[in-house]
Computed example of a mutant assay.
Amino acid sequence: MVGGWIGKLGTVWVEGQITELTARGGTVFLTLRDPVANISARVTCPRGVYEATVPRPVDGARIVTHLKPDFWVNKGSFAFTALEMRPVGVGELLARLERLRRLLASEGLFGVDRKRRLPFLPGTVGLICGRDSAAERDVLENSRRRWPAVRFTVEPVAVQGPYAVGEVIEALRRLDADTDVDVIVIARGGGSMEDLLPFSDEALVRAVAACRTPVVSAIGHEQDNPLLDLVADVRASTPTDAAKKVVPDVGEQLTLIRQLRDRGRRVAKGWLDRETAWLAAARSRPALADPVREVERRAEQAEQLRDRARRSLTGSLDRAQDSLEHLRARLVSLSPAATLERGYAIVQRPSGDVVRLASEISPGDELTVRFSDDRVTVRSDSTT
């Protein structure tokens, strides 16, 4: 019943990656795997159909197959029979990769703002690479040549084929969970576009974007550009370049330290020389070279100012004295007392009025006669 029901389903087109390709007699057996969903199906293919496919599919190739589902009653298992095979062309692969690139870019996975800086000197470097590969030797040898004390945790994985994506993702998760690992390098030597397809896998790209540890992509050569290069924090053109970016050169750093030290010495010496010259100039100033002389000079200035003030005050007093003498002489010359000293007298009434004419005096008037140094009171008897 099951076989009859399955036989009525008709044919389907299925795309996948070939794994476990074997040929026995007139039949080719292969497993068709979906690398993203991690689902596989057993396929049998007549040798004529297989050999008619150009180019002939090999293990790891991506194909589109026209399949008819079957049910093997004796084994109780499902299988597919290939009626036609078509290799997935490079143009179609590039178009799919471009669509995936635009999708991931729209989600911000390739944004510059999410990329992290590499540590200056990582304590431990996690390395994901092929088993006993040239990429592993390049990274290890160049890194240890640059900084012999650097430590590595190497995770050997398949770097092409149907199992590459799963193994790389699992190694990435282990290294990311290790708190001693400061940076992760994913390295692979060059290869064809089909060989590098696992490093453009969506699941791997998203796994790298989710890492908390900085990731360096060193896939292929300068011209290769898988999607892993876009999501990684740093892209290296080759595994050797990855070693240069991750590990500083001890010789270069020692040279830099020596240059900075010499520069610091020159700056400090220049500053000390300037300050010493300023101090010498300050000490050579008269105020500091001979402080007593400055005090004496100021004392001389004070004495000169005092003498000048005295001369100025004496001259002012002398001039005032002369002026006062002249004014006194004028007052004396104009004073009535001077007239009185020449023998004249002033006649006044008791009220103080001066008597100028004899006719103003009546007999019996009391008068005061004032002389230069005294006065006398008289009474008039008569007038003439």
Rank of each mutant, 00 (worst) to 15 (best):
Q304W: 04
P214Q: 06
W271I: 07
I219W: 02
R308G: 12
L272I: 08
P336F: 07
K245M: 12
D273Q: 08
E252F: 08
V267E: 10
S217F: 04
R297Q: 12
E222Q: 11
P336V: 04
P214W: 04
L272N: 10
D290P: 02
N225D: 12
Q253K: 06
A299M: 12
S323H: 14
T240N: 03
A218T: 01
R308A: 12
V216W: 05
S335W: 06
V292P: 08
G352K: 03
W271K: 10
L317I: 10
H326L: 15
R265E: 10
K245V: 01
R285Q: 13
R258E: 12
V250I: 15
R285F: 00
H326G: 12
S284M: 13
W271Y: 11
G343R: 04
W278D: 08
S335T: 02
P291Q: 09
T240V: 07
V215Q: 02
Q259V: 07
R319T: 14
R349G: 02
S316T: 15
P336L: 07
V267R: 11
R258F: 08
S333K: 10
A320T: 13
G270A: 11
R274L: 07
R330T: 12
R266M: 05
D241I: 04
A329C: 11
W271L: 13
G343S: 06
T314F: 14
P214F: 00
A309P: 03
A277P: 01
A280Y: 05
P248K: 09
K244Y: 09
Q301P: 06
Q321R: 15
L331I: 10
T314Q: 14
G343K: 00
E275K: 11
D318E: 15
L227F: 07
D241G: 10
D224P: 01
T255E: 15
D307G: 11
E300Y: 09
A282T: 02
R235D: 03
T255M: 11
D307F: 14
P286N: 00
A309I: 05
S237L: 13
A309V: 02
G343A: 07
V215Y: 01
Q259L: 07
S312M: 13
L279R: 11
P350H: 05
R261K: 13
S323Q: 14
P291V: 07
D262F: 06
A243G: 03
K269V: 13
E222H: 08
E303P: 06
V292D: 14
L317K: 09
T339F: 01
D249R: 05
L288Y: 12
L228Y: 01
L334I: 01
I346E: 03
R310S: 08
Q348Y: 04
D249P: 02
D307L: 15
A243L: 00
R235K: 09
S217C: 05
R311W: 09
